[in-house]
Nucleic acid binder design. Structure first.
Lengths: 196, 196
DNA sequence: AACGATACGGAACATTGTTCCGCTTTTGCA
DNA sequence: TGCAAAAGCGGAACAATGTTCCGTATCGTT
C-alpha cells in the first residue's frame, strides 16, 4: 500500500529513463553483493557488480544506509505488517515472542545488518531511523497488549527492547556457538511479570 | 606475530630501558585517548599523544587488541576475581546478577569496547580470547551454582550468556534512551526457571 | 538537428591501518 | 672508556575504502 512517500524508496517514477534503470540495477547488484559479502561490502564492489561508476551510486544513494534501506525496505515492511496479524492469532505475549523471532530471523540472515543498526553509527542514521519509524509502533502495540493482559511487566520501553534485540543479533551469523534467537527468547522471557 | 612471552601485558621486565619506558608511555597515552575518543581511536592519535612514531606502537603492540588488553587487563582481572567473592556473599542467582552488572558497567564505561568484543572481528581476536579466557570460567561457576540451587534453568551456556550481555552493551554509552544494564537485567531475569 | 538539463564515469582526495627500512640509542665487552 | 652489534625508533610509503568533483555523454524537448 502507498505509504507517505519520503526518505528513500520508490517515489513517483521521476527523472530520466536511464537514471531509473540504473537505480534498479544498483538495487539488484547491492542485494546480490549483500548476500555474499554482507552489508559492509565496499561501495566499489557494488558499483562494479552493477557496471556503473562510483559517482552514479552516490548520486542515487547519498549514503549507504539509503542503499540498504532500498534493498530491505520490503522485508522491514513485511515484518511491521506481521505484528498486528500475529496479535490477532493468539495471546499478546505469544504474539510478541513470535514477532521478535521474525525480527531476529530477519537481522540474523543479513550479514552485518544488525551491527549497522547501532545509533552511534552516524553513517547509518537513516537506516536506524527507518527501522525505528517502521517497527517501533508495532512493537509498542504488542508490548501494550501484553501489558494489558498482565502477561508482562508494564514498564518496558519498546525502543529499548528493539535496541536490545537488535544488539543481540550482532555477529550471530558467524558464530556457531552463539544463538541470537535463544538469547532474544531469554530477553523476552525476562519481560514476564515477576511471579509472586 | 608471536610476541615474546605473554600475549600482551606486563611480562618480566625485559629488553632495553627506553623500550620499557615507551611501553608504559604508550599504555598511558592509549588509556587517555580511549577515554576521550573510544577504543577505536586512530592509531596515529595514540602515537601522537605518546610522542612516538607509528613503528614504535606497532612493535610493542602488534595488533590494537594487544593495546586494549594492556590498558584494561587489570579491570578484567578484577571483574573475574569479583565472581567468587560475590558467590560467597549471597544466593548464587543474586551473585550472578551482581556479577553481570559489574561486567556491564565495565563495558559501558569504555567507549566502543563492547563493539570490539565481537568474535567476527578478526582484528580483535586476541581481545576476545582474553576476555573469554578470563571471564568464562567465572561465569560458568556462577551459572552452575545458580543451576544447582534451582534458581535458574540448567541449560544455559556461559559463552552464550557472555556474548549476549556483551552485545547488549554495544553503543550504550552514546544512547541516552537505551539502558544496557536494564536489558542485561532482563536477560538474567529470563534465566529463571520457568514457574510451574 | 540543436540545445539545455540531467546523469555518468572515474580520477582525485581524505582517512586510517600496516609494513618496511635507514638511522639512532643502548648495551655488553674489551 | 671506546666501540661494535643489537635493539629500538620514526615516519615515509603502501593499501583499502569512503566521498567529492567535474569534464563528458546521454536524454528529452523544441
Amino acid at each position: 500500500m502507498g505509504d507517505s512517500g519520503e526518505s528513500a524508496g520508490r517515489a513517483a517514477p521521476s527523472g530520466r529513463k536511464d537514471a531509473r534503470r540504473n537505480r534498479e540495477t544498483l538495487l539488484d547488484a547491492a542485494a546480490t553483493v549483500f548476500v555474499t559479502s554482507g552489508v559492509d561490502a565496499p561501495v566499489r564492489d557494488i558499483a562494479a557488480k552493477a557496471g556503473v561508476g562510483l559517482g552514479t551510486i552516490y548520486r542515487h544513494f547519498p549514503t549507504r544506509a539509503d542503499l540498504v534501506i532500498g534493498v530491505y525496505r520490503h522485508q522491514v515492511d513485511a515484518c511491521a505488517d506481521a505484528g498486528p496479524a500475529l496479535l490477532a492469532t493468539g495471546s499478546p505475549y505469544t504474539a510478541l515472542g513470535q514477532w521478535i523471532d521474525l525480527f531476529v530471523d530477519f537481522l540474523v540472515t543479513k550479514h552485518g545488518l544488525a551491527a549497522v543498526m547501532r545509533p552511534d553509527n552516524a553513517d547509518f542514521e537513516a537506516l536506524h531511523t527507518y527501522f525505528l519509524d517502521r517497527l517501533l509502533p508495532v512493537c509498542t502495540e504488542l508490548l501494550d497488549a501484553a501489558a494489558v493482559t498482565g502477561e508482562i511487566r508494564p514498564d518496558i520501553d519498546a525502543y529499548e527492547l528493539m535496541r536490545g534485540v537488535g544488539n543481540l543479533c550482532i555477529g550471530a551469523e558467524s558464530d556457531t556457538r552463539y544463538d541470537a534467537r535463544r538469547m532474544a527468547g531469554l530477553l523476552v522471557a525476562g519481560l514476564r511479570r515477576p511471579h509472586a
